[in-house]
Design a protein around this nucleic acid. Structure first.
Length: 615
DNA sequence: CTTCTCACG
DNA sequence: ACGTACGTGAGAAGT
Protein backbone atom coordinates (compact mmCIF):
# COMPACT_ATOMS: atom_id res chain seq x y z
CA UNK A 1 0.00 0.00 0.00
CA UNK A 2 1.21 3.44 -0.82
CA UNK A 3 0.31 5.98 1.87
CA UNK A 4 0.44 9.74 1.77
CA UNK A 5 -0.15 12.12 4.64
CA UNK A 6 -1.17 15.75 4.51
CA UNK A 7 -2.36 18.44 6.91
CA UNK A 8 -5.89 19.80 6.50
CA UNK A 9 -6.99 22.30 9.16
CA UNK A 10 -4.93 20.71 11.92
CA UNK A 11 -5.89 17.13 11.01
CA UNK A 12 -3.49 14.72 9.39
CA UNK A 13 -5.35 13.09 6.57
CA UNK A 14 -4.35 9.81 4.92
CA UNK A 15 -4.41 8.86 1.27
CA UNK A 16 -4.25 5.08 0.76
CA UNK A 17 -3.38 3.51 -2.56
CA UNK A 18 -3.95 -0.28 -2.54
CA UNK A 19 -1.39 -2.38 -4.39
CA UNK A 20 -2.06 -5.92 -3.11
CA UNK A 21 -5.02 -8.14 -2.25
CA UNK A 22 -4.48 -7.42 1.44
CA UNK A 23 -4.61 -3.70 0.71
CA UNK A 24 -7.90 -4.18 -1.15
CA UNK A 25 -9.32 -6.10 1.82
CA UNK A 26 -8.58 -3.07 3.98
CA UNK A 27 -10.40 -0.93 1.44
CA UNK A 28 -13.46 -3.24 1.57
CA UNK A 29 -13.56 -3.02 5.34
CA UNK A 30 -13.27 0.77 5.23
CA UNK A 31 -16.10 1.06 2.71
CA UNK A 32 -18.40 -0.96 4.93
CA UNK A 33 -17.60 1.13 8.00
CA UNK A 34 -17.75 4.47 6.19
CA UNK A 35 -20.95 3.61 4.34
CA UNK A 36 -22.70 3.06 7.64
CA UNK A 37 -21.58 6.48 8.86
CA UNK A 38 -22.76 8.63 5.97
CA UNK A 39 -22.14 9.73 2.39
CA UNK A 40 -18.81 8.96 0.74
CA UNK A 41 -17.06 11.40 -1.56
CA UNK A 42 -16.30 10.14 -5.06
CA UNK A 43 -14.05 11.40 -7.82
CA UNK A 44 -12.23 10.07 -10.87
CA UNK A 45 -9.00 10.86 -12.68
CA UNK A 46 -9.07 10.30 -16.40
CA UNK A 47 -7.02 10.99 -19.52
CA UNK A 48 -8.79 14.32 -20.18
CA UNK A 49 -12.14 15.94 -20.79
CA UNK A 50 -13.16 14.29 -24.07
CA UNK A 51 -15.13 11.50 -22.40
CA UNK A 52 -16.52 10.18 -25.68
CA UNK A 53 -13.35 10.09 -27.75
CA UNK A 54 -12.26 6.58 -28.80
CA UNK A 55 -8.94 6.83 -26.94
CA UNK A 56 -10.38 8.11 -23.67
CA UNK A 57 -9.45 6.28 -20.50
CA UNK A 58 -10.49 6.09 -16.85
CA UNK A 59 -7.35 6.02 -14.70
CA UNK A 60 -8.33 6.09 -11.02
CA UNK A 61 -11.50 6.10 -8.93
CA UNK A 62 -11.24 7.77 -5.53
CA UNK A 63 -13.41 7.31 -2.46
CA UNK A 64 -13.10 9.19 0.78
CA UNK A 65 -14.46 10.82 3.89
CA UNK A 66 -13.07 13.83 5.75
CA UNK A 67 -9.95 12.02 6.97
CA UNK A 68 -9.22 9.09 4.68
CA UNK A 69 -9.06 8.74 0.93
CA UNK A 70 -8.62 5.65 -1.22
CA UNK A 71 -7.20 5.89 -4.73
CA UNK A 72 -8.20 2.80 -6.71
CA UNK A 73 -6.18 2.30 -9.88
CA UNK A 74 -8.88 1.38 -12.35
CA UNK A 75 -6.26 1.36 -15.06
CA UNK A 76 -4.65 -1.71 -13.47
CA UNK A 77 -7.84 -3.59 -14.28
CA UNK A 78 -8.63 -7.01 -12.73
CA UNK A 79 -9.10 -6.96 -8.98
CA UNK A 80 -8.61 -3.18 -8.82
CA UNK A 81 -11.37 -2.37 -11.30
CA UNK A 82 -13.52 -5.03 -9.61
CA UNK A 83 -13.00 -3.36 -6.22
CA UNK A 84 -14.00 0.06 -7.56
CA UNK A 85 -17.04 -1.38 -9.32
CA UNK A 86 -18.10 -3.17 -6.15
CA UNK A 87 -17.78 0.03 -4.10
CA UNK A 88 -19.75 2.04 -6.66
CA UNK A 89 -22.59 -0.49 -6.38
CA UNK A 90 -22.57 -1.01 -2.64
CA UNK A 91 -22.20 2.54 -1.33
CA UNK A 92 -25.56 4.18 -0.51
CA UNK A 93 -24.81 7.90 -0.84
CA UNK A 94 -22.17 9.76 -2.81
CA UNK A 95 -20.82 13.29 -2.73
CA UNK A 96 -19.41 14.39 -6.08
CA UNK A 97 -18.13 17.77 -7.14
CA UNK A 98 -19.46 18.44 -10.64
CA UNK A 99 -21.23 15.11 -10.76
CA UNK A 100 -22.38 15.03 -14.38
CA UNK A 101 -18.79 14.59 -15.52
CA UNK A 102 -18.15 11.58 -13.27
CA UNK A 103 -21.59 10.10 -13.98
CA UNK A 104 -20.77 10.06 -17.69
CA UNK A 105 -17.22 8.77 -17.20
CA UNK A 106 -18.36 5.89 -14.98
CA UNK A 107 -21.37 5.18 -17.20
CA UNK A 108 -19.23 4.88 -20.30
CA UNK A 109 -16.01 3.45 -18.93
CA UNK A 110 -16.92 1.51 -15.78
CA UNK A 111 -20.28 0.09 -16.77
CA UNK A 112 -22.09 1.85 -13.91
CA UNK A 113 -25.29 3.29 -15.43
CA UNK A 114 -25.70 7.00 -14.86
CA UNK A 115 -29.19 6.26 -13.54
CA UNK A 116 -27.72 4.20 -10.68
CA UNK A 117 -25.18 6.81 -9.56
CA UNK A 118 -27.31 9.91 -10.06
CA UNK A 119 -30.03 8.52 -7.81
CA UNK A 120 -27.59 8.49 -4.89
CA UNK A 121 -25.54 11.61 -5.57
CA UNK A 122 -25.31 14.99 -3.93
CA UNK A 123 -23.39 17.35 -6.21
CA UNK A 124 -21.45 19.83 -4.06
CA UNK A 125 -21.01 22.09 -7.07
CA UNK A 126 -24.78 22.55 -7.28
CA UNK A 127 -24.97 23.35 -3.56
CA UNK A 128 -22.20 25.93 -3.99
CA UNK A 129 -24.04 27.58 -6.89
CA UNK A 130 -27.19 27.86 -4.77
CA UNK A 131 -25.17 29.62 -2.06
CA UNK A 132 -23.43 31.97 -4.52
CA UNK A 133 -23.88 31.54 -8.28
CA UNK A 134 -21.21 34.04 -9.33
CA UNK A 135 -18.17 33.00 -11.30
CA UNK A 136 -14.80 34.25 -10.01
CA UNK A 137 -14.56 37.01 -12.63
CA UNK A 138 -17.84 38.42 -11.24
CA UNK A 139 -16.54 38.67 -7.70
CA UNK A 140 -17.71 35.28 -6.46
CA UNK A 141 -15.71 32.38 -5.09
CA UNK A 142 -16.62 30.40 -8.15
CA UNK A 143 -17.77 26.81 -8.09
CA UNK A 144 -14.42 25.09 -8.61
CA UNK A 145 -13.40 22.57 -5.93
CA UNK A 146 -10.11 24.36 -5.19
CA UNK A 147 -11.41 27.90 -4.56
CA UNK A 148 -14.38 26.53 -2.59
CA UNK A 149 -12.06 24.40 -0.46
CA UNK A 150 -9.76 27.35 0.15
CA UNK A 151 -12.73 29.44 1.26
CA UNK A 152 -14.75 26.95 3.29
CA UNK A 153 -12.18 24.46 4.54
CA UNK A 154 -8.54 25.43 4.51
CA UNK A 155 -7.03 28.60 3.03
CA UNK A 156 -3.88 26.60 2.25
CA UNK A 157 -5.77 24.01 0.17
CA UNK A 158 -3.34 23.30 -2.64
CA UNK A 159 -4.17 24.12 -6.21
CA UNK A 160 -4.56 20.57 -7.48
CA UNK A 161 -4.64 21.35 -11.18
CA UNK A 162 -2.01 24.09 -10.94
CA UNK A 163 0.51 22.03 -8.96
CA UNK A 164 -0.07 19.05 -11.20
CA UNK A 165 0.68 21.04 -14.33
CA UNK A 166 4.04 21.87 -12.72
CA UNK A 167 4.61 18.13 -12.21
CA UNK A 168 3.54 17.50 -15.80
CA UNK A 169 6.13 20.01 -16.99
CA UNK A 170 8.89 18.41 -14.94
CA UNK A 171 8.01 15.10 -16.63
CA UNK A 172 8.16 16.70 -20.06
CA UNK A 173 4.36 16.72 -20.36
CA UNK A 174 1.90 19.55 -21.00
CA UNK A 175 -1.55 20.44 -19.68
CA UNK A 176 -2.97 18.52 -22.62
CA UNK A 177 -0.81 15.40 -22.47
CA UNK A 178 -0.25 15.31 -18.70
CA UNK A 179 -3.48 13.67 -17.55
CA UNK A 180 -2.87 10.84 -19.98
CA UNK A 181 0.90 10.62 -19.72
CA UNK A 182 1.62 11.01 -16.01
CA UNK A 183 2.91 7.84 -14.31
CA UNK A 184 0.02 6.42 -12.28
CA UNK A 185 2.51 5.91 -9.38
CA UNK A 186 3.50 9.59 -9.32
CA UNK A 187 3.17 10.67 -5.65
CA UNK A 188 1.84 14.16 -6.40
CA UNK A 189 -0.79 12.73 -8.74
CA UNK A 190 -1.95 10.24 -6.11
CA UNK A 191 -1.89 12.68 -3.22
CA UNK A 192 -4.01 15.18 -5.12
CA UNK A 193 -6.37 12.54 -6.41
CA UNK A 194 -6.99 11.61 -2.78
CA UNK A 195 -7.18 15.18 -1.49
CA UNK A 196 -10.00 16.00 -3.89
CA UNK A 197 -12.38 13.55 -2.25
CA UNK A 198 -11.32 14.68 1.21
CA UNK A 199 -12.13 18.28 0.33
CA UNK A 200 -15.41 17.28 -1.32
CA UNK A 201 -16.34 15.36 1.80
CA UNK A 202 -15.61 18.35 4.03
CA UNK A 203 -17.28 20.80 1.68
CA UNK A 204 -20.74 19.28 1.92
CA UNK A 205 -21.45 20.03 5.61
CA UNK A 206 -19.90 23.50 5.23
CA UNK A 207 -22.16 24.29 2.28
CA UNK A 208 -25.21 22.89 4.07
CA UNK A 209 -24.52 25.14 7.06
CA UNK A 210 -24.28 28.07 4.69
CA UNK A 211 -27.50 27.08 2.92
CA UNK A 212 -29.30 26.92 6.26
CA UNK A 213 -27.86 30.26 7.39
CA UNK A 214 -28.90 31.95 4.14
CA UNK A 215 -32.29 30.23 4.08
CA UNK A 216 -31.82 28.71 0.62
CA UNK A 217 -35.18 27.23 -0.43
CA UNK A 218 -35.06 23.46 0.23
CA UNK A 219 -36.89 22.54 -2.98
CA UNK A 220 -34.09 23.95 -5.12
CA UNK A 221 -31.69 21.14 -4.20
CA UNK A 222 -33.66 18.17 -5.59
CA UNK A 223 -34.82 20.33 -8.50
CA UNK A 224 -31.26 21.20 -9.57
CA UNK A 225 -30.14 17.58 -9.19
CA UNK A 226 -32.97 16.49 -11.49
CA UNK A 227 -31.94 19.11 -14.07
CA UNK A 228 -28.31 18.00 -13.83
CA UNK A 229 -29.44 14.44 -14.55
CA UNK A 230 -31.54 15.53 -17.55
CA UNK A 231 -28.63 17.53 -18.97
CA UNK A 232 -26.19 14.65 -18.41
CA UNK A 233 -28.64 12.38 -20.21
CA UNK A 234 -28.69 14.73 -23.20
CA UNK A 235 -24.87 14.84 -23.15
CA UNK A 236 -24.73 11.06 -23.23
CA UNK A 237 -27.18 10.93 -26.13
CA UNK A 238 -25.20 13.49 -28.11
CA UNK A 239 -26.07 14.94 -31.47
CA UNK A 240 -25.56 13.20 -34.82
CA UNK A 241 -23.10 14.95 -37.12
CA UNK A 242 -23.29 14.98 -40.92
CA UNK A 243 -19.60 14.19 -41.38
CA UNK A 244 -19.49 14.46 -45.12
CA UNK A 245 -21.30 17.76 -45.17
CA UNK A 246 -19.17 19.15 -42.32
CA UNK A 247 -15.92 18.19 -44.04
CA UNK A 248 -17.14 19.86 -47.23
CA UNK A 249 -18.17 22.91 -45.26
CA UNK A 250 -14.76 23.16 -43.57
CA UNK A 251 -13.06 22.96 -46.99
CA UNK A 252 -15.39 25.53 -48.52
CA UNK A 253 -14.85 27.96 -45.62
CA UNK A 254 -11.08 27.41 -45.81
CA UNK A 255 -11.09 28.35 -49.48
CA UNK A 256 -13.15 31.45 -48.84
CA UNK A 257 -10.90 32.48 -45.99
CA UNK A 258 -7.78 32.15 -48.19
CA UNK A 259 -9.28 34.10 -51.08
CA UNK A 260 -10.36 37.04 -48.97
CA UNK A 261 -7.13 37.01 -46.99
CA UNK A 262 -5.25 37.34 -50.28
CA UNK A 263 -7.38 40.37 -51.16
CA UNK A 264 -6.73 41.95 -47.77
CA UNK A 265 -3.02 41.35 -48.19
CA UNK A 266 -3.04 43.39 -51.41
CA UNK A 267 -4.21 46.34 -49.30
CA UNK A 268 -1.42 45.83 -46.77
CA UNK A 269 -3.24 43.71 -44.16
CA UNK A 270 -1.18 40.57 -43.60
CA UNK A 271 -3.32 39.43 -40.67
CA UNK A 272 -7.09 39.98 -40.91
CA UNK A 273 -7.44 39.31 -37.19
CA UNK A 274 -5.18 42.18 -36.22
CA UNK A 275 -7.36 45.18 -35.43
CA UNK A 276 -4.30 47.44 -35.35
CA UNK A 277 -3.26 46.47 -38.90
CA UNK A 278 -6.78 46.94 -40.24
CA UNK A 279 -7.19 50.35 -38.63
CA UNK A 280 -3.84 51.51 -39.98
CA UNK A 281 -4.53 50.30 -43.52
CA UNK A 282 -8.04 51.82 -43.59
CA UNK A 283 -6.72 55.18 -42.39
CA UNK A 284 -4.04 54.93 -45.07
CA UNK A 285 -6.83 54.55 -47.64
CA UNK A 286 -8.35 57.80 -46.45
CA UNK A 287 -11.16 56.33 -44.36
CA UNK A 288 -11.88 58.18 -41.13
CA UNK A 289 -12.45 55.91 -38.14
CA UNK A 290 -14.29 57.67 -35.34
CA UNK A 291 -15.43 54.99 -32.88
CA UNK A 292 -13.07 53.89 -30.15
CA UNK A 293 -12.92 50.85 -27.86
CA UNK A 294 -13.01 50.98 -24.06
CA UNK A 295 -9.23 51.25 -23.93
CA UNK A 296 -9.08 54.02 -26.52
CA UNK A 297 -7.99 52.05 -29.59
CA UNK A 298 -9.70 52.67 -32.92
CA UNK A 299 -12.70 50.39 -33.23
CA UNK A 300 -12.85 48.20 -36.34
CA UNK A 301 -15.54 45.69 -35.50
CA UNK A 302 -18.12 44.15 -37.81
CA UNK A 303 -20.54 47.11 -37.60
CA UNK A 304 -17.80 49.57 -38.56
CA UNK A 305 -16.53 47.37 -41.41
CA UNK A 306 -20.02 46.66 -42.78
CA UNK A 307 -20.65 50.42 -42.99
CA UNK A 308 -17.38 50.92 -44.88
CA UNK A 309 -18.24 48.03 -47.21
CA UNK A 310 -21.65 49.64 -47.84
CA UNK A 311 -23.46 46.60 -46.42
CA UNK A 312 -26.41 46.42 -44.03
CA UNK A 313 -26.67 43.95 -41.16
CA UNK A 314 -27.88 41.26 -43.55
CA UNK A 315 -24.83 41.82 -45.78
CA UNK A 316 -26.96 43.43 -48.54
CA UNK A 317 -25.73 46.45 -50.53
CA UNK A 318 -27.02 49.75 -49.16
CA UNK A 319 -25.99 52.03 -52.02
CA UNK A 320 -24.91 54.83 -49.72
CA UNK A 321 -21.23 54.89 -50.72
CA UNK A 322 -18.52 53.22 -52.75
CA UNK A 323 -17.70 49.97 -50.93
CA UNK A 324 -14.25 49.86 -49.40
CA UNK A 325 -12.72 46.64 -50.83
CA UNK A 326 -10.43 46.08 -47.86
CA UNK A 327 -13.27 46.35 -45.32
CA UNK A 328 -15.27 43.93 -47.45
CA UNK A 329 -12.43 41.41 -47.70
CA UNK A 330 -11.63 41.61 -43.97
CA UNK A 331 -15.17 40.90 -42.74
CA UNK A 332 -15.56 38.02 -45.19
CA UNK A 333 -12.18 36.48 -44.35
CA UNK A 334 -12.80 36.81 -40.62
CA UNK A 335 -16.25 35.27 -40.82
CA UNK A 336 -15.09 32.32 -42.91
CA UNK A 337 -12.14 31.77 -40.56
CA UNK A 338 -14.21 31.93 -37.42
CA UNK A 339 -16.96 29.69 -38.72
CA UNK A 340 -14.42 27.14 -39.89
CA UNK A 341 -12.35 27.01 -36.71
CA UNK A 342 -15.05 27.55 -34.08
CA UNK A 343 -17.76 25.42 -35.67
CA UNK A 344 -16.84 23.11 -38.56
CA UNK A 345 -13.40 22.02 -37.29
CA UNK A 346 -14.56 21.73 -33.68
CA UNK A 347 -17.48 19.52 -34.75
CA UNK A 348 -15.15 17.17 -36.60
CA UNK A 349 -12.58 17.12 -33.79
CA UNK A 350 -15.09 16.40 -31.04
CA UNK A 351 -16.88 13.57 -32.84
CA UNK A 352 -17.04 10.10 -31.23
CA UNK A 353 -16.59 6.76 -33.03
CA UNK A 354 -20.28 6.77 -34.05
CA UNK A 355 -20.17 10.23 -35.62
CA UNK A 356 -21.90 11.94 -32.69
CA UNK A 357 -20.85 14.99 -30.76
CA UNK A 358 -21.43 15.23 -27.03
CA UNK A 359 -21.20 18.85 -25.87
CA UNK A 360 -20.88 19.56 -22.17
CA UNK A 361 -24.20 20.93 -20.91
CA UNK A 362 -23.81 22.82 -17.64
CA UNK A 363 -27.25 22.81 -16.01
CA UNK A 364 -26.51 25.67 -13.57
CA UNK A 365 -23.76 27.98 -14.78
CA UNK A 366 -24.67 31.66 -15.15
CA UNK A 367 -25.23 33.91 -12.13
CA UNK A 368 -28.91 33.76 -13.10
CA UNK A 369 -28.66 29.93 -13.17
CA UNK A 370 -28.96 29.85 -16.95
CA UNK A 371 -27.53 26.74 -18.58
CA UNK A 372 -24.51 26.73 -20.83
CA UNK A 373 -23.22 24.44 -23.55
CA UNK A 374 -19.52 24.13 -24.29
CA UNK A 375 -17.11 22.10 -26.42
CA UNK A 376 -18.68 22.90 -28.83
CA UNK A 377 -20.82 25.93 -27.88
CA UNK A 378 -24.04 24.73 -29.53
CA UNK A 379 -26.11 27.54 -28.00
CA UNK A 380 -24.28 30.07 -30.16
CA UNK A 381 -24.36 28.69 -33.71
CA UNK A 382 -25.15 31.36 -36.34
CA UNK A 383 -28.92 31.74 -36.71
CA UNK A 384 -29.01 34.14 -39.65
CA UNK A 385 -27.63 31.45 -41.96
CA UNK A 386 -28.43 27.73 -42.08
CA UNK A 387 -25.01 26.49 -43.18
CA UNK A 388 -23.54 25.67 -39.75
CA UNK A 389 -26.68 24.18 -38.19
CA UNK A 390 -27.10 22.07 -41.30
CA UNK A 391 -24.17 19.97 -39.99
CA UNK A 392 -26.25 18.57 -37.11
CA UNK A 393 -28.79 15.88 -37.82
CA UNK A 394 -31.84 14.25 -36.32
CA UNK A 395 -31.58 10.45 -36.11
CA UNK A 396 -32.13 8.53 -39.36
CA UNK A 397 -35.86 8.65 -40.09
CA UNK A 398 -36.30 11.46 -37.58
CA UNK A 399 -36.93 15.19 -37.92
CA UNK A 400 -35.80 18.13 -35.81
CA UNK A 401 -38.39 19.73 -33.53
CA UNK A 402 -37.71 23.08 -31.90
CA UNK A 403 -40.17 24.27 -29.28
CA UNK A 404 -39.78 27.88 -28.15
CA UNK A 405 -41.45 29.79 -25.37
CA UNK A 406 -43.42 32.77 -26.67
CA UNK A 407 -41.81 36.03 -25.44
CA UNK A 408 -41.06 34.33 -22.13
CA UNK A 409 -39.08 37.18 -20.52
CA UNK A 410 -41.81 39.75 -21.16
CA UNK A 411 -44.40 37.36 -19.73
CA UNK A 412 -42.24 36.73 -16.68
CA UNK A 413 -41.95 40.49 -16.23
CA UNK A 414 -45.73 40.93 -16.58
CA UNK A 415 -46.28 38.23 -13.97
CA UNK A 416 -43.64 39.15 -11.39
CA UNK A 417 -44.12 42.92 -11.59
CA UNK A 418 -47.89 42.37 -11.83
CA UNK A 419 -48.20 44.71 -14.83
CA UNK A 420 -51.96 45.07 -15.21
CA UNK A 421 -52.27 46.11 -18.86
CA UNK A 422 -49.59 43.63 -19.94
CA UNK A 423 -51.40 40.79 -18.20
CA UNK A 424 -54.64 41.79 -19.88
CA UNK A 425 -53.00 41.95 -23.32
CA UNK A 426 -51.37 38.54 -22.87
CA UNK A 427 -54.63 37.02 -21.61
CA UNK A 428 -56.50 38.41 -24.61
CA UNK A 429 -54.08 36.64 -26.93
CA UNK A 430 -53.03 39.82 -28.74
CA UNK A 431 -49.41 40.27 -29.83
CA UNK A 432 -47.83 42.09 -26.89
CA UNK A 433 -45.70 44.45 -29.01
CA UNK A 434 -48.71 45.44 -31.15
CA UNK A 435 -50.63 46.16 -27.97
CA UNK A 436 -47.78 48.25 -26.56
CA UNK A 437 -47.40 50.25 -29.78
CA UNK A 438 -51.15 51.01 -29.79
CA UNK A 439 -51.05 52.14 -26.16
CA UNK A 440 -48.03 54.40 -26.78
CA UNK A 441 -48.68 55.78 -30.27
CA UNK A 442 -52.41 55.21 -30.73
CA UNK A 443 -54.30 53.03 -33.23
CA UNK A 444 -52.34 54.41 -36.19
CA UNK A 445 -49.00 53.06 -34.97
CA UNK A 446 -46.43 52.08 -37.61
CA UNK A 447 -44.07 49.12 -37.98
CA UNK A 448 -41.25 51.37 -36.78
CA UNK A 449 -43.32 52.24 -33.69
CA UNK A 450 -43.79 48.56 -32.96
CA UNK A 451 -40.05 48.01 -33.31
CA UNK A 452 -39.25 50.83 -30.88
CA UNK A 453 -41.87 49.55 -28.43
CA UNK A 454 -40.34 46.10 -28.60
CA UNK A 455 -36.88 47.62 -28.05
CA UNK A 456 -38.14 49.45 -24.99
CA UNK A 457 -39.50 46.17 -23.68
CA UNK A 458 -36.00 44.71 -24.02
CA UNK A 459 -34.49 47.72 -22.31
CA UNK A 460 -36.88 47.21 -19.38
CA UNK A 461 -35.76 43.59 -19.10
CA UNK A 462 -32.07 44.51 -19.46
CA UNK A 463 -32.07 47.83 -17.62
CA UNK A 464 -31.07 49.94 -20.60
CA UNK A 465 -31.49 53.67 -21.14
CA UNK A 466 -32.80 55.78 -24.01
CA UNK A 467 -29.40 56.08 -25.73
CA UNK A 468 -28.79 52.34 -26.07
CA UNK A 469 -32.40 51.65 -26.99
CA UNK A 470 -32.10 54.26 -29.74
CA UNK A 471 -28.87 52.71 -30.97
CA UNK A 472 -30.37 49.22 -31.00
CA UNK A 473 -33.57 50.20 -32.77
CA UNK A 474 -31.96 52.77 -35.04
CA UNK A 475 -34.51 55.35 -33.90
CA UNK A 476 -33.97 58.98 -32.88
CA UNK A 477 -32.92 59.26 -29.24
CA UNK A 478 -35.45 61.98 -28.39
CA UNK A 479 -38.28 59.96 -29.91
CA UNK A 480 -37.19 57.00 -27.83
CA UNK A 481 -37.00 59.13 -24.69
CA UNK A 482 -40.57 60.37 -25.21
CA UNK A 483 -41.79 56.85 -25.98
CA UNK A 484 -40.13 55.52 -22.83
CA UNK A 485 -41.91 58.11 -20.71
CA UNK A 486 -45.21 57.09 -22.30
CA UNK A 487 -44.32 53.42 -21.83
CA UNK A 488 -43.85 54.05 -18.10
CA UNK A 489 -47.33 55.65 -17.95
CA UNK A 490 -48.86 52.62 -19.71
CA UNK A 491 -47.01 50.12 -17.52
CA UNK A 492 -46.33 52.00 -14.26
CA UNK A 493 -45.82 48.83 -12.27
CA UNK A 494 -42.44 48.05 -13.84
CA UNK A 495 -40.64 51.04 -12.35
CA UNK A 496 -42.17 50.48 -8.93
CA UNK A 497 -41.12 46.84 -9.02
CA UNK A 498 -37.59 47.78 -10.06
CA UNK A 499 -37.24 50.15 -7.08
CA UNK A 500 -38.64 47.51 -4.77
CA UNK A 501 -36.17 44.86 -6.00
CA UNK A 502 -33.23 47.23 -5.65
CA UNK A 503 -34.29 48.28 -2.16
CA UNK A 504 -34.74 44.68 -1.04
CA UNK A 505 -31.40 43.61 -2.51
CA UNK A 506 -29.61 46.48 -0.74
CA UNK A 507 -31.22 45.49 2.57
CA UNK A 508 -30.16 41.91 2.01
CA UNK A 509 -26.44 42.79 1.63
CA UNK A 510 -26.79 43.20 -2.16
CA UNK A 511 -28.44 39.88 -2.78
CA UNK A 512 -31.83 39.67 -4.47
CA UNK A 513 -34.08 36.66 -3.97
CA UNK A 514 -36.24 35.30 -6.78
CA UNK A 515 -39.76 33.86 -6.35
CA UNK A 516 -38.21 30.39 -6.38
CA UNK A 517 -35.90 31.38 -3.51
CA UNK A 518 -32.83 31.62 -5.67
CA UNK A 519 -30.11 33.95 -4.39
CA UNK A 520 -29.07 36.58 -6.95
CA UNK A 521 -26.04 38.67 -5.89
CA UNK A 522 -25.91 42.08 -7.55
CA UNK A 523 -22.99 44.53 -7.79
CA UNK A 524 -23.81 47.60 -5.71
CA UNK A 525 -22.83 50.02 -8.50
CA UNK A 526 -25.19 48.18 -10.90
CA UNK A 527 -28.18 47.62 -8.65
CA UNK A 528 -30.55 48.10 -11.61
CA UNK A 529 -29.32 44.75 -12.98
CA UNK A 530 -31.36 42.92 -10.33
CA UNK A 531 -34.44 43.37 -12.54
CA UNK A 532 -32.72 41.43 -15.31
CA UNK A 533 -31.38 38.80 -12.92
CA UNK A 534 -34.82 38.07 -11.47
CA UNK A 535 -36.47 37.98 -14.91
CA UNK A 536 -33.71 35.93 -16.55
CA UNK A 537 -33.45 33.42 -13.72
CA UNK A 538 -37.24 33.00 -13.54
CA UNK A 539 -37.30 32.41 -17.30
CA UNK A 540 -34.55 29.83 -16.79
CA UNK A 541 -36.69 28.12 -14.19
CA UNK A 542 -39.58 28.11 -16.66
CA UNK A 543 -37.28 26.11 -18.94
CA UNK A 544 -36.14 23.96 -16.01
CA UNK A 545 -39.76 23.13 -15.14
CA UNK A 546 -40.49 22.33 -18.77
CA UNK A 547 -37.46 20.02 -19.02
CA UNK A 548 -38.62 18.09 -15.96
CA UNK A 549 -42.20 17.88 -17.23
CA UNK A 550 -40.93 16.71 -20.62
CA UNK A 551 -38.79 14.03 -18.96
CA UNK A 552 -41.75 12.88 -16.87
CA UNK A 553 -43.82 12.72 -20.06
CA UNK A 554 -41.36 10.29 -21.60
CA UNK A 555 -39.70 12.75 -24.00
CA UNK A 556 -36.14 12.52 -22.65
CA UNK A 557 -34.84 10.26 -25.42
CA UNK A 558 -35.98 12.80 -28.03
CA UNK A 559 -34.34 15.74 -26.30
CA UNK A 560 -31.05 17.07 -27.65
CA UNK A 561 -30.35 20.56 -26.24
CA UNK A 562 -31.75 23.24 -23.93
CA UNK A 563 -31.29 26.68 -25.50
CA UNK A 564 -32.51 29.23 -22.91
CA UNK A 565 -36.12 29.49 -24.15
CA UNK A 566 -36.16 26.46 -26.43
CA UNK A 567 -36.00 22.67 -26.27
CA UNK A 568 -34.43 21.11 -29.33
CA UNK A 569 -35.42 17.52 -30.14
CA UNK A 570 -35.13 14.70 -32.68
CA UNK A 571 -38.29 12.61 -33.19
CA UNK A 572 -39.54 9.97 -35.63
CA UNK A 573 -41.03 11.60 -38.70
CA UNK A 574 -44.29 9.66 -38.43
CA UNK A 575 -44.93 10.80 -34.84
CA UNK A 576 -43.45 14.28 -35.12
CA UNK A 577 -46.77 16.12 -34.93
CA UNK A 578 -47.89 14.36 -31.75
CA UNK A 579 -44.48 14.72 -30.11
CA UNK A 580 -44.32 18.42 -31.01
CA UNK A 581 -47.73 18.87 -29.35
CA UNK A 582 -46.40 17.05 -26.30
CA UNK A 583 -43.45 19.44 -26.07
CA UNK A 584 -45.81 22.40 -26.36
CA UNK A 585 -47.94 20.96 -23.56
CA UNK A 586 -44.87 20.45 -21.33
CA UNK A 587 -43.83 24.05 -21.91
CA UNK A 588 -47.26 25.51 -21.19
CA UNK A 589 -48.29 26.50 -17.67
CA UNK A 590 -49.38 29.45 -15.59
CA UNK A 591 -46.87 31.70 -13.83
CA UNK A 592 -48.79 33.62 -11.21
CA UNK A 593 -51.81 33.80 -13.48
CA UNK A 594 -49.86 34.72 -16.63
CA UNK A 595 -49.89 32.00 -19.29
CA UNK A 596 -46.44 30.78 -20.34
CA UNK A 597 -46.87 29.27 -23.79
CA UNK A 598 -44.70 27.63 -26.42
CA UNK A 599 -44.77 26.93 -30.13
CA UNK A 600 -43.17 23.96 -31.84
CA UNK A 601 -41.59 24.04 -35.26
CA UNK A 602 -41.10 20.78 -37.13
CA UNK A 603 -38.19 20.76 -39.55
CA UNK A 604 -36.51 18.20 -41.75
CA UNK A 605 -33.62 15.88 -40.97
CA UNK A 606 -31.07 18.64 -40.25
CA UNK A 607 -31.14 21.45 -37.69
CA UNK A 608 -30.40 23.81 -40.57
CA UNK A 609 -33.77 22.97 -42.12
CA UNK A 610 -35.38 25.25 -39.53
CA UNK A 611 -33.22 28.11 -40.81
CA UNK A 612 -34.00 27.92 -44.49
CA UNK A 613 -31.83 25.04 -45.70
CA UNK A 614 -33.31 22.16 -47.67
CA UNK A 615 -34.33 19.32 -45.36
C1' DC B 1 -3.61 36.99 -18.63
C1' DT B 2 -6.25 40.91 -20.74
C1' DT B 3 -8.47 42.94 -24.66
C1' DC B 4 -11.09 42.74 -28.72
C1' DT B 5 -14.21 40.60 -31.52
C1' DC B 6 -18.17 37.79 -32.58
C1' DA B 7 -21.59 33.94 -32.15
C1' DC B 8 -26.26 33.07 -29.39
C1' DG B 9 -30.85 33.86 -26.21
C1' DA C 1 -28.92 62.82 -7.33
C1' DC C 2 -26.70 60.42 -10.92
C1' DG C 3 -26.49 56.98 -14.73
C1' DT C 4 -26.16 52.03 -16.30
C1' DA C 5 -28.66 47.16 -21.74
C1' DC C 6 -28.44 41.34 -19.27
C1' DG C 7 -26.33 36.59 -19.49
C1' DT C 8 -22.92 33.33 -21.81
C1' DG C 9 -18.37 30.67 -24.77
C1' DA C 10 -14.60 30.90 -28.03
C1' DG C 11 -10.56 32.33 -30.88
C1' DA C 12 -6.84 35.41 -31.85
C1' DA C 13 -3.72 39.18 -30.88
C1' DG C 14 -0.92 41.64 -27.93
C1' DT C 15 1.31 42.67 -23.51
Amino acid sequence: MQNFYFGVMGDTITVNVPETDDDLREFFAWVQRANARGPIALDTETTGLDIFSPTYGLRTVQFGDGLTAWVIRWEWGGRFAEAARWALRVIDRFLIHNASFDWLVLDRHAGIPMEVLSAKTTDTRLLAALVDPRQPQDGGIGTGLKPLSAFYIDPTAPDTAGDLTAVFRSEGLTKETGWRGIDIRNPTYNLYAGLDVIYTSRLEPALRREMARLDVRAALEPYEHELAYICAYMMRTGFLLDQEYTQGLADKLSGEELRYRATAERYGVANVNSTAQIAEALCGMGESLTERTASGALKVDKAVLLDLADLDRDWKRVGARTPNPLADAVIRAKRAGKWRSTYADTFLESMDANGRIHPFIGSLVARTARMSITRPALQTLPSGDWMIRRALLAEPGHVIISTDFTAVEMRVLASLANVRRMREAIASGEDLHDFTARQVWGPGFTKQHRKIGKGIGFSKVYGGGAATTARQTGADENDVRRAMAEYDRVYPEIKRWSYKLQREARWNSWVGVSETGRRLPVDRNRAYAIVNYVVQSTARDCLGNALITAKESGLLDYMRLPIHDEILASAPRAEAKEIAKEFERCMTFSLGGVPIEAEAEIGGNSWGSLYGAAA
